[in-house]
């Protein structure tokens, strides 16, 4: 699932990866607050609650979440940058010990190090964040419509299995799994509508589930997008560590 050798080597970088996940999660909580405010407003409009109260509630929630999201996006970039720098430091320090190696091999090892940097800064935070986002969205949906919420982790699970690099899965199987994930999301929305029809859910609950499905799928799509970086990163890791071990083996033989 992820490159353990690189992860264990990358002492300080791990801290920034975790911070990146935490910051993105903060942004997600802010987004859920906005969705809640909008859904509650629309429900209250239908029920006939006071317009002044609604406007005040919408403004206060949105003002708070606006700045939270702004700082979360900037924080996420910073953490990604810092984890890439820490990874670079560690890998270059290892490379500097192999100054005697052939120029071409060192060049290849440097290129592999760049791919491993990208793996740590782009792929790993998304790999940890996507399941956390799925759990958070499910918990938020549980409060409003638990029957529909049960389908969301199924969707997230199927998508994660399809997206995480795995040589045993063919392309067709991945496509089928992704379609099944989207089907689970669609069924979640349908279940929510049926619960509303049977008076087991409120309008705001239904609206929340509908808008939360977008927040469930977004990190999974980003993880899918960073899959090429993951595959290249893993191959680069294998080549890099083989290079280090080969040079160590050569030195021992001498």
């Amino acid at each position: 699932m992820f490159e353990k050798r690189l992860y264990s080597l990358n002492g300080e970088g791990k801290k920034y990866i975790r911070l990146n996940v935490l910051v993105q999660w903060g942004g997600l909580l802010a987004e859920i607050a906005v969705i809640y405010a909008a859904a509650l407003t629309l429900d209250a409009l239908y029920s006939g609650l006071s317009g002044g109260f609604l406007a005040f509630f919408a403004i206060m929630t949105a003002t708070g979440t606006m700045f939270v999201r702004y700082f979360c996006v900037r924080g996420s970039f910073r953490c990604g940058f810092l984890s890439a720098m820490k990874t670079r430091e560690v890998l270059h320090s290892r490379l500097s010990l192999k100054a005697d190696a052939e120029k071409e091999e060192r060049q290849k090892a440097t290129e592999n190090a760049e791919r491993m940097e990208k793996y740590c800064s782009e792929y790993l935070p998304q790999l940890y964040y996507a399941p956390l986002a799925a759990v958070t969205v499910t918990v938020a949906a549980c409060f409003v419509c638990w029957k529909a919420a049960l389908l969301l982790p199924a969707a997230a699970g199927l998508y994660l299995i399809a997206v995480i690099p795995n040589e045993k899965l063919t392309r067709k199987t991945r496509d089928v799994l992704i379609c099944a994930a989207y089907l689970c999301v669609a069924l979640g929305i349908v279940v929510c509508l049926l619960e509303l029809k049977n008076h087991n859910a409120h309008i705001y609950g239904c609206l929340m589930v509908i808008m939360l499905t977008g927040e469930l799928l977004r990190p999974l799509r980003l993880l899918e997008k960073s899959r090429p970086a993951a595959e290249e990163g893993r191959k680069a890791c294998d080549a890099f560590f083989t290079f280090l071990e080969k040079e160590e083996g050569g030195e021992k033989a001498r």
Binding site: V34, A38, L45, G51, L54, A55, A62, Y70, V73
Partner: peptide
């Protein structure tokens, strides 16, 4: 962009309420 997206959303919600 994210900040403005939320700002425009709240402006629209207020407009809709009014």
């Amino acid at each position: 962009s994210e900040l403005l997206a939320v700002l425009f959303s709240v402006m629209l919600v207020i407009a809709v309420i009014l």
